[in-house]
Design a protein around this nucleic acid. Structure first.
Lengths: 250, 250
DNA sequence: ACCGCAAAAATTGCGTACAATCCGAGCGTC
DNA sequence: GACGCTCGGATTGTACGCAATTTTTGCGGT
């Protein structure tokens, strides 16, 4: 059993691209268009390095170039696209080294979030969410084997756990940066991390310990546990990339 | 003797706002306008929370609303402005806690950069730059007292040192994120950090040790030294904010 | 006076036309 | 045949006008 790395530590799922039926909950076309293009890229509709022509996108999406340009600029600032003046936007090409590096960064940021959460404490609501997530995870793992539905369920549990800690850090910039790390597409869904029962169980145990440390306001332990927790996912990713060490960069 | 925190670890200096004489080296109006508005904000031309009206800016800058809108969006993604759909952009208000938090984040990121630099090694050019910066710093500190020019000179030395390590991390996202931390305006140049001779000397000694660790490929030591190096600046900032502990948040 | 509501003003969002720039094909020269 | 140049098409950058939304203003009721 294995799943994409993205689920290993929790991540929102994209939806389809050119569905004109899009509910368009977004308050403005620019934002809506950005969401749709982002989802399209993350679902692999464009080759890495492909140019994104403003007119074609605007025709395909049924809007003018203006909101498309705005959306492209947003996506570039998110790191999903590259921009060259007078030469437009293209899908950013991620080297495997960049994907691994994103986990290095995320390791530092998530461990900081855990430390800050421990230092600053949790609200009642946050405690409730985490305890719910831990209980749900316990339930899923009570069975000795994981089905597809369990993996999806655990992904949600996992996301709730981490997301709540980000919130508990009371530091918006930190959450934003972690989001940027998560938005690095995992090499077009090609890189998978080992997702065996024991791996999940171990990560879930980590969650329990991290929560304990935060509750006890043990900032140092919370930081170190979270650091190891995320770093282990990186290690698994590196290993799965093909058993050999992360290849030289550039 | 003291200087703004921004110089304590190196940061580019902004230039004036509406100087139409602006060389406009930027390849496009949008980028040029973004630079000018950014400089204007960082130099304190706008109150925190102030709305930025597109038409007024476009008139003041002598361009149409289109590049202004593009520039505002860029600045918002940099974290300098806040955006609300249909309600425009306003200068982001930074709580002192957010400024301190930015240093917390930067501590983690810079220490990671130092570790990666140690793991991955320096190019000849990078070694040369750092050794030059260290030598220049030695020269400045040979005198037992610092004049204004020395402080400016040391700021440049300091910037070169850190910037080269960021580059040596071979991790673009890391550099980008550190830049975001640096772009948090230090509470309108009001927060200053102790900048006495001994403080600078100590930081310069840190630089020497960090460089040694990187040269020796001692990743752990490089990380820890850099962590303490940046954290000490944060501590100084917190102390200078008024001698009392960082006040409770929210 | 205070509150709610409606119309007007101000401001942002979007569409479209035009200008500037970039890229490649074709041609001429060496 | 290779190199450089010019020209044409394609694409992005900018200006401007109108539509949509928000905010302010003004009025009537209580």
């Amino acid at each position: 059993m294995s799943e994409t790395v993205s689920d290993a530590l929790g991540e929102p799922a994209p939806d389809s691209f050119a569905d004109g039926m899009d509910a368009e909950r977004a308050p403005t076309r620019s934002l809506s268009v950005a969401d749709r293009i982002r989802a399209s890229i993350l679902s692999g509709d464009f080759e890495p390095g492909a140019r994104l022509h403003e007119v074609r996108l605007s025709e395909r999406l049924g809007v003018s170039r203006t909101p498309v340009r705005s959306a492209l600029q947003s996506l570039a600032s998110e790191g999903l696209l590259e921009y060259a003046p007078n030469r437009g936007y293209s899908v950013r090409r991620f080297l495997t080294s960049e994907i691994v590096d994103a986990y290095e960064i995320r390791t530092m940021l998530e461990s900081l979030a855990a430390r800050l959460a421990a230092e600053r404490g949790l609200t009642d609501a946050e405690r409730a969410v985490i305890e719910g997530a831990l209980a749900d995870g316990d339930a899923i793992l009570a069975k000795a084997e994981l089905e597809e539905a369990d993996r999806i369920g655990y992904g949600a549990v996992n996301f709730a756990f981490h997301d709540t800690i980000h919130a508990a850090s009371r530091c918006r910039m930190l959450g934003d940066m972690i989001r940027m790390c998560q938005s690095v597409p995992q090499s077009s869904h090609r890189n998978v991390v080992s997702f065996e029962y024991l791996e999940v169980r171990r990560r879930h145990e980590d969650h329990h310990r991290i929560y304990d440390a935060i509750l006890l306001r043990d900032a140092y332990r919370a930081e170190m546990l979270m650091r190891e927790h995320v770093a282990s996912v990186k290690t698994g990713l590196v290993r799965s990339i093909s058993g050999r060490a992360p290849r030289s960069r550039r």
